[in-house]
Amino acid sequence: MADDTTVDPVEGQVLDGNAVGGLLATAFGAEMTEVPGECAHCGTVSMVGELRAYVRAPGTVLRCPACSGVVLRVVETPNATLIDVRGAAYLRFERR
């Protein structure tokens, strides 16, 4: 298909999870980018900072680098931050 050879503007907009590190740190009350989590769709374990971040959207969607499944979604409304964690089987926080 001719489209396969054209540049996809969306791919150029994709960041990694570090791009929303500050937002997640505020919401969770902990530094999140080095927290490992398991993708609920395919079982791949990635650090939050390694997830693929789609930020040009009504919210931020963090996807598994292996299967593209949604791991975390973040929406900031004027009064709240909502985080959907259904795509993460777990997040692992080390006790120190």
């Binding site: 996809d8 791919e11 040009r56 959207a57 919210g59 969607v61 996807r63």
Partner: peptide, 13 residues
């Protein structure tokens, strides 16, 4: 025409 996207662009033939 801004492009907003929550995921990779699907390309179904």
């Amino acid at each position: 025409f801004p492009v907003l996207s929550a995921g990779p662009t699907p390309r179904t033939p």
